[in-house]
Nucleic acid binder design. Structure first.
Length: 906
RNA sequence: GCCGAAGUGGCGGAACUGGCAGACGCGCGCGACUCAAAAUCGCGUUCCCUCGGGAGUGUGGGUUCGACUCCCACCUUCGGCACCA
């Protein structure tokens, strides 16, 4: 009797051998075709991994092993996103240096990865908190600091080109160009004043540097930011969900602090456009588009009555409704508010501004919120018709979007409609709806009476574009929508009070953190302004400190270390970079991870990048995945990399939930997420200890569709284990326990084997790993049947076993290697070529066709695969089932669906 | 509210381009082996049923010889966005 399958014995043995032989060490750039398959690199937590974390690692490992067997040079690396708050908070709590925790936690992760038999090339391991790595994060930071986005070249270029232009011609030409090419609105800070060459030359170096901040791709600015009072840290817009910080869950508050930003806004248009080139889940693409938030329209200047020099520009996507603007609303923070407010309204306005400021993000965005606002006492002139309209302030107008001021068109904007109703402001219809035209049977312009009548009946704004423009001077009579919008913009431009404008919701990416455990920002603040630390002095090392806590007002712990802060040239920057910076380029570093002369040898970078398949969770949709794209584009512009998009194919794995079913207060059943605090975590360690890594891997693949959220099943792993047991026995001892005799020819077995290869490759390419495993299980079942049909020992049998083991190798590498070894085949199975499907062998000899009568299956027929259509139809008509329903009559219709069925209509 | 995805047995899920619904696995039932148990093997397992069939993929309609698949309306769940002018 053959010994039993014992994963605990064979898995450590082979893992040690593979490691000793460096079986998975990746070759440098060469003539072989490459395949780069990457997992989102994790932040190593003290808790280690759960089976949920392995959900993406196993499929990518299958891909890596598959492509190796297909003859590709495969890059399949792993690293750690080691900086950041979780480790820092743990360090504070445990009173242990985060450097030490980082080493401890990442070592534990490596141990777990190895336990699962993942084929990473460990010689390429990177850790973002090691100076050899963050030196280059700092290097890229300086590339951004020393660059600006020239809108005329549509790319980033060194800041010296801007300085030269300012000295020669001032900034007028650049700002004019942006004005006429509104897609480039994000290349410069809002409100940057135009200066002449004389003014530039008259500035001190410090003033010049301050002005350059308006253009640099990495810049410092005074800004209202999201402050997380629990973690005592600022967080980026992308890290705030429903007014709460992404990580801590605390309600964020607004604070004004000087911070570092990356000018992601300069890339808004390209970040949208290049989404067309990537193979990403539609959901992520949509989220990025929404986040960037492009909208097109016009900027129109309204003048304030009795203060003709006060111009208030507004942004609108519906310039075709300009004639319907019956009031204006400014954001409470709008800088003009104090200047235009009439004395008798001053007190009320100030009270309202204080109220708006005190509102939290959550209150301000509450869904059922009533409109609030106050009248400033001032009036503006609607430039298209000269009408005098009141200026209000209200919190529904945001300073951060557009110009912070709107023209209110209550008839055609629901928010303005609600505001007008509440404060009894006039509503003027300028788009007469199509539906009303039809109701009245109108083909030409509606009468004044018809418009007034409709106006009276309105219960909501008419925001649709279907209809005809009325009461709008030269525009009246035009169909509303695109054409009218274009005409309105042309009219405004011609009259000199408006022009085409594009707006993006995306704002500069807030990168600085006043915390310890991050990459130091390599800047020294001199009396002349910010100074980049010279490249040869990098890295700026993160000094050891005794206390990691930020100050009570969020001061960086680095501020209290004089030897760090004080330099001969000035005061060193004490902010560190958020971890998003580290993760925005790590995929490049893997191409040449230990290079100490450059971020990587261009030969290696050009060979390996971009990433072919990138797999991770969907929670980074607008964070890491957007930031990385921006950095890639900057590096592309500066000639450092040759690719525009870092990740060609992206897939998101689904979540794995705890297996215990819970019932909520409404009696509904649900499964909770695995978390240490709930005590429901299942670790790969415990599963492997009981059933082995191969069974764990098999079940991770088999559990569900890859992208689906699914509860873990404790019964699932033993099921896969049973299958591996069956593989073990049928390979090593096929004759030991026979079942009842079965029917199968050698030809049948060969067909099944080759069909399995085809199914396997099709499923793998479709990320359909659950059906890939099912195909292997069916193949195994077929081998048992073949045994009972007496095929053991036939050449087809040996071929089938050979194919089974090769197909098994990427999925269950240990058992495949062991069985391969026991059959006396040469080490290692993982260096064998993948089997090639023989299409002829896979083809069926006979077809089993269903015979349908009026759409219902009534019989089945078997015909030779090469039978012609007429023969097949006749065979179907002659079948017992068909005869029963035909009763000798001729069929009305008869359809043959190739290889599937014959459908007869009687 | 808006946008997107998804609803299939007791459970996880299959089903290619509109073509035999329920592959594969779990669970369950019956049987074999065994003194017994475990393991293993075999058979069965959508529902109803008068054993000939009938119904069936969230609900209601439609297109088609034929619909899990396409169209319309609705319900539910999950994700995302949410005063973005």
């Amino acid at each position: 009797m053959v010994e039993r399958y014992n994963p605990q014995a064979i898995e450590p043995k082979w893992q040690a051998r593979w490691e000793q032989d460096q079986l998975y060490k990746t070759l440098p750039a060469c003539d072989k075709p490459k395949y780069y398959v990457l997992d989102f690199y994790p932040y190593p937590s003290g808790e280690g991994m759960s089976v949920g974390h392995a959900r993406n690692y196993v499929p990518t490992d299958v891909l890596a092993r598959y492509y190796r067997m297909k003859g590709y040079n495969v890059l399949h690396p792993m690293g750690f996103d080691a900086f950041g708050l979780p480790t820092e908070n743990a360090a504070i709590k445990l009173k242990v240096d985060p450097h030490e925790l980082n080493e401890r936690y990442s070592a534990n992760y490596v141990r777990q990865y190895k336990l699962m038999g993942l084929s990473y090339d460990w010689s390429r391991l990177i850790n973002s908190a090691h100076p050899e790595y963050y030196r280059w994060t700092q290097w890229i930071f300086l590339k951004l600091f020393n660059a600006w986005y020239d809108p005329r070249l549509d790319k980033a270029v060194p800041i010296e080109t801007l300085e030269a232009e300012l000295a020669e011609r001032g900034s007028g030409a650049i700002l004019d160009y942006i004005d006429n090419h509104p897609e480039h609105i994000g290349v410069v800070n809002k409100g940057t004043p135009a200066i002449t060459a004389e003014q530039w030359r008259a500035m001190s170096r410090r003033e010049q540097n301050e002005y350059l901040y308006n253009f640099r791709l990495a810049f410092q600015a005074e800004s209202t930011v999201n402050w997380d009072p629990v973690d005592k840290v600022v967080v980026a817009d992308e890290e705030v969900e429903n007014g709460r910080a992404w990580r801590s869950g605390a309600l964020v508050i607004k604070r004004t602090i000087r911070q570092w930003f990356f000018r992601i806004t300069a890339y808004a248009e390209r970040l949208i456009k290049d989404l067309d080139e990537v193979d990403w889940p539609e959901r992520i693409v949509t989220m990025q588009r929404n986040w960037i938030g492009k909208s097109e329209g016009a900027e129109v200047i309204f003048r304030v009555c009795n203060a003709e020099q006060s111009a208030i520009p507004v942004f609108t996507t519906r310039p075709d409704t300009l004639w319907g603007a019956t009031f204006m609303v400014l954001s409470p923070e709008h800088p003009l508010v104090p200047h235009i407010t009439a004395p008798e309204h001053k007190a009320e306005v100030e009270r309202y501004i204080a109220f708006a400021k005190g509102e939290s993000e959550e209150q301000r965005t509450a869904t059922d919120k009533e409109k609030t606002g106050v009248f400033t006492g001032a009036y503006a002139i609607n430039p298209v018709n000269g009408e005098r309209i009141p200026i209000w302030i209200a919190d529904y107008v945001l300073m951060s979007y557009g110009t912070g001021a709107i023209m209110a068109v209550p008839a055609h904007d629901q928010r303005d409609f609600e505001f007008a109703k509440k404060f009894n402001l006039p509503i003027k219809v300028v788009v007469f709806p199509q539906a009303e035209m039809e109701r009245l049977g109108l083909s030409g312009a509606p009468s004044e009476a018809a418009i007034t009548d409709y106006e009276r009946r309105m219960t909501a704004a008419y925001e649709d574009k279907a209809g005809v423009i009325v009461n709008s001077g030269p525009l009246s009579g035009t169909p509303a929508g695109t054409e009218a919008i274009r005409a309105a913009i042309a009219y405004c431009a011609q009259m000199g009070f408006g022009k085409r404008r594009v707006n993006y919701k995306i704002r500069p990416w807030l990168i600085s953190r006043q915390r310890y455990w991050g990459t130091p920002i390599p800047i020294i603040h001199t009396p002349d302004g910010p100074l980049a630390v010279p490249e040869h002095e990098l890295p700026v090392l993160l000094p050891k400190v005794s206390a990691y806590e930020p100050g009570p007002n969020g001061e960086s712990p680095l501020e209290s270390i004089p030897e760090f802060v004080n330099t001969p040239l000035g005061r060193r920057e004490t902010d560190t970079m958020a971890t998003w910076a580290c993760s925005s380029w790590y995929y490049i570093r893997f191409a040449d991870p230990h290079n100490d002369k450059a971020i990587g040898d261009p030969k290696e970078i050009d060979y390996w990048l971009p990433v072919d398949t990138y797999v991770g969770g969907a929670e980074h949709a607008v964070l890491h995945l957007l930031y990385s794209r921006m950095w890639t584009k900057v590096l592309y512009d500066l000639g450092i990399v040759k690719f525009k998009e870092p990740f060609r194919t992206l897939r998101n794995q689904g979540l794995i939930l705890s297996p215990q079913k819970r019932v909520d207060e409404h009696g509904r059943e649900y499964y909770e997420k695995m978390s240490k605090s709930k005590g429901n975590v299942i670790t790969p360690d415990e599963v492997i200890a009981e059933h082995g890594a191969d069974a764990l891997r098999g079940y991770e693949l088999f559990i569900s569709d890859f992208e689906q959220t699914v509860p873990w099943s404790t019964q699932g792993v033993p099921g896969v284990r049973r299958w591996l047991d069956r593989v073990w026995r049928i390979v090593l001892a096929p004759e030991e326990e026979k079942g009842p005799p079965a029917q199968m020819t050698p030809r049948d077995l060969r067909r099944i084997a080759h069909q399995t290869i085809l199914r396997y490759e099709r499923d793998l390419k479709a990320f359909s790993f659950n059906t890939l495993v099912a195909a292997l299980m069916e193949f195994t079942n077929a081998l048992y049947k073949a045994r009972d049909a007496g095929l053991v020992g036939a050449p087809e049998w040996d071929e089938a076993i050979d194919i089974l083991l090769r197909l098994l190798a990427p999925v269950a590498p240990h058992i495949a290697e062991e069985l391969w070894h026991r059959l006396g085949r040469p080490y290692s199975i993982h260096q064998q070529p993948f089997p090639v499907a023989d299409e002829a062998a896979a083809r069926a000899d006979v077809l089993h066709l269903a015979v349908q009568i009026n759409g219902k299956v009534r019989d089945r027929i078997t015909v030779p695969a090469d039978a012609d259509e007429e023969t097949i139809k006749q065979a179907a008509l002659a079948s017992e089932g068909a005869k029963r329903y035909l009763n000798g009559a001729a069929p009305k219709q008869i359809h043959y669906v190739k290889g599937r069925l014959v459908s007869i209509v009687v």
